[in-house]
Structure formats: C-alpha cells, structure tokens
C-alpha cells in the first residue's frame, strides 16, 4: 500500500531523513517511533505530498506521489500532530467542505459523517464553531474528516494526543476496522505501549535513519518495545 524507497530530505546542511526505506502492506497497522526531531514528521509530510523531498520514491497503492499527487491524495488521509482546522467554520460545514473536495456523493457523506461523529461522540457539537472546540474535539473532527472518503491509507501524526480515553479507544478500534477492510495505517507515536499493543509492524527512526523495523514481535524480541527503543537510542550515541 505504501512503499518508501531511499527517501532523503535535507534542511540546509541537516539530513532530516536519510535514505529511508519501508513498506506498509494492506491490512497493516504500522507504527513509526522516534525521539523528537528524528525525522518522523518529515517522512509523514513527504508521504502526504505536502513536503517536497530531495531523492527517493514514495508510492501509494502503486501511484507515485510526485508524478500522480492527486491520485495519491485521493487515496490517503492525513491527520497532523496539531490539527489547525478552519476555525471560522462550524464542524458540520468543515466536514461538508472536505466531502465536497473529495467529491463524495450526498447520501454517502451524510451517512459517513453521522456514523463517525456518533462513534466519536461529536455529533451534538457539529453545529458549533470550530474556534470554540477544545483540542480533543478538533482532533476528533480531523479524524472524522479523514475518514469521509474511506481512504486506502491513513497517515496519522501522534493521533492520540488530546483524546480522552474513550475516544482514544474508539480511534484504535477504527484503525483496526479500516485495516480489516483492506486499508493500511501508518502512524507516529511516542506512546510505546500503544505501539506495542496496536501495531502489526513498527519502525524505529533515529537521526533520519531507520535503526530497526519489522513485525512488532520480532523487533521487541523478549523485552518490551520501550527497552528496545531505549537500548537502540543509547547504542547510537
């Protein structure tokens, strides 16, 4: 579903991502772990076509993000770490706007918006201005907007930040459900316990390079993901 090959991105003299390759297959939840500044967000933004990279290739469902950006974006949903939404709109107008841009049929959008809003318990607040939403409510709205077009690939940057435990659980269930339906989820997190329990595969990035990746059980071995992560961190220093 997602293939990243030899991705490199530099900011001035700094290599934020250095020759990174990873593959996310259909039905997989893939966790992307690394310390602050390791290159997670740069990789994610490159995948979503909102950051130009220096070299390498990224394909989504067989389409190159550079050559066919619109096709890739139509198959992808992106949720940034800090969802700055259009706060001059109400929640429902924002969702309808997103549905318009993704060209979703009127009946389908009605059904999906209400289904996901009910699931994340945001329906009652959809008429409110986004400017009046809490961080968690904005995060929920961003998640609903990401699901309206039934994406093949969900790319999430720290998706659980700001969510209450119930919503957090609902999002985890949604991620699994989407994968069961054949989609793929690629998300970054600092919460290693979540990655350990939720992810089929994980990749650990440090200084822009992958230092470990593969099925979660293999990467973890007999210890916890946290131990592996901290050990890899100290090995590299």
């Amino acid at each position: 579903m997602l293939r990243i090959e030899n991705l490199t991105k530099t900011y001035g003299d700094k290599r934020a991502v250095d020759d990174l390759s990873l593959h996310v297959g259909p039905g997989e939840i893939y966790g992307f772990i690394g310390h602050n500044g390791a290159g997670k967000t740069t990789t994610i933004k490159s995948v979503c076509g909102i950051l130009q990279f220096d070299s390498g290739t990224i394909t989504i469902d067989g389409h190159d993000v550079r050559r066919e950006p619109l096709l890739c974006k139509a198959r992808t949903a992106y949720i940034p770490d800090n969802p700055d939404l259009y706060d001059f709109m109400t929640g429902i107008k924002y969702l309808n706007f997103i549905a318009d841009v993704f060209d979703i049929d009127a009946a389908l959008r009605n059904e999906r918006i209400h289904r996901y809003s009910d699931m994340l318990e945001l329906t009652a607040d959809l008429a409110g201005a986004i400017s009046s939403y809490s961080h968690g409510m904005k995060q929920k709205l961003a998640i609903i907007s990401a699901l309206i077009h039934e994406p093949r690939l969900l790319v999430l940057d720290e998706p659980f930040v700001g969510l209450d435990p119930k919503a957090s659980r609902a999002v985890k269930d949604l991620m699994r459900q989407k994968c069961d339906e054949g989609a793929a989820v690629f998300f970054s997190t600092h919460v290693l316990e979540v990655a350990e329990r939720l992810c089929d595969k994980v990749a650990i990035i440090k200084g822009g390079r992958l230092v470990a990746h593969g099925p979660t059980d293999e990467v973890r071995g007999d210890s916890s993901l946290e131990d592996v992560f901290l050990e890899l961190e100290s090995d590299q220093q």
Binding site: I92, A99, D100, A106, R109, I113, A124
Partner: peptide, 14 residues
C-alpha cells in the same frame, strides 16, 4: 452551545 440538528448536506463542486 448550539445543538446540531441533522439535515441533508448539499454537494458542491471542488
């Protein structure tokens, strides 16, 4: 707080 009342959403071009 304005409580949302479900209604048909209209579709527009991009």
């Amino acid at each position: 707080r304005v409580r949302y009342q479900a209604r048909e959403l209209r579709r527009s071009g991009r």
